[in-house]
Every structure is written in C-alpha cells, then in structure tokens.
Amino acid sequence: MKSRNFSSLPIIILLALVSLPLVTMYVFLFVDTISDAPAGSLIPTSFTLEHWRFLWEEPKVGETSIWPVTLNTFIFAATTSSIVMTVSLMAGYALSRLNMPFRRFMLAGLITLHAFPTITLIIAIFLILQLLGLYNTLLGVIIVKTALELPFGIWIMKGFYDTVPWEIEMAGVQDGASRFTVWWKLVLPQVQPGLVALGVFSFLSAWSEFILPQVLSPSGSGQVLSTYLNSLILDDTRPDFNMFKSVGLFYAMPVIFIYLTFQKKLMNIYGGGSKG
C-alpha cells in the first residue's frame, strides 16, 4: 500500500537483514557453479566452466549421464501434468455442474481427500506397486504421483468451474447444444486460464518430487533428477559443492524459468491452500 504517512526505509532494511541467509544461498548457488575459490575462502578468484562438465563429458564407468535422467524427469513431469489436467478437467466439471447420483458423497470425499496427508499412505502404495509389478519403473512413479495430485487438481478445477456463470450453460442448452457440447465448446474456454495454471503447477510439483521416486523407483532406468542429485550428494566422500550446485542449478533452471513466466497464474493456486 502506498502511503506517504509512513517511511518504508526501516522496513526495507529489516527485511534485507532477515533475507540475508537466503540471498547468500541464492547468490552462491549461482556464483559457485562458474567459479573457483581457494580453500578456506569464499571469494571466487577464477572463472571456470569445469563444474558443468557433467553436461558434455562421457560419464565414467558406474556413473550415469545426466541426459537420460533429465529426459526421464521431463517425461515424468509432463505425463503427470497432462493426466492430472485431463482427469481434473472432467471430474471437476461433473462435481461442479452435473446432476448425478452420490454427488454429495463424492464432494464430501473430495474435501476429505484434499486435506488428507497422502504421504502417510506411502508404505501401502509401495507394496501395491510391488504387487502390480510396477516397482522400480518410471510408469509406477507417474501413476502414483498423478493419483496423489488429483484431489488437489479436481478441487482447483471445481473452483474454476464454479466461477463460470450458469447462464452461459443455460444459453448453450437453449441454443440446442448437448451438455457435452456445452462443456467442450462453451465452458472449457472459460476455465482455460485455470487449466494452464493447474498444468504448470502439477508439472512443477512432479519435476521437484523427491520422495516418490526415491521410494518407488530407487535405482536403474527410472531415475529422475532429484534422486540423481541426491545420490550424487550421498555418494561422494569429499563433497564437491561446486559440482552439486551446477547439477542443482541445471535441475532448478526450468523451475525458475517457469515460475517467472507464470508467476501471476501460479499465485492463484499456491494461495488456494496447496500442500505446505
């Protein structure tokens, strides 16, 4: 709020002070990836691209190249996000607008699920994947991530549908369109911004996901960047933070880019009581 009655300088100083640890971490997250500093010093003395060599060097025996892992992560995030969008788009509409049996019951279930801490079910889910033979596959992780993301997605989409005026649908019905046509041609375009936001949100959520791939697909072909980076950190006896940070920054870049692009749209969702 702009008000000339109060000066904002003291607040800026105070905020700058408490933000110092975070800002330090951000700055060095970037600086350390392109520079070297002598041992025992924080000030970088030379520029180098050495820490990024994992991008172009052949991996040593026993190590994995980052590219297939990146591809995995992308497939994981993109698939999860598209399924979440599709299913939420349908279920959200049904719950928001359609007469159907057990509607009250399903809505109550949705709210309960939305609040329910799904991570507590991971043991049972781990065993289900083992029984289904999907343990240690990317497909298994995708299915589980999608499932856990759905109550939230449906909830958000229902919220967007709720804001579409009923009269638009009534007009469509009067104009002779079936309920399906009304949904497809008239209502969907109205919730498109919400859909984009949900898609971006679930993409980011899957891209960042760590626990699920760690537990459900810990080794081999299903590896994603989060588990890749984590095992890198755990494996090394002498931590090479510069290299970790380079991999980390490589992993985080799409996130930061997407966040900056969709900032406004995302805020709607993050403010809407997501997992926190």
């Binding site: 299913v87 939420s88 349908m90 279920a91 049904a94 359609l98 289900i128 499932a147 109550p151």
Partner: peptide, 25 residues
Amino acid sequence: PSHLLGLGFMLPALIVVVLFFLLPV
C-alpha cells in the same frame, strides 16, 4: 442424461481414488 455424463466424467478419478487412496488406507 447428465447422470450418465457425470458418472462418465467421474470414472477415471474414482478409479484412481479407489486404487491409491481407499485401498492404501
């Protein structure tokens, strides 16, 4: 007709909920 459409639209979500929420609980 919206009963059928509604249940059809809910079906994928219901399967997922049963498989990954009810069953795990």
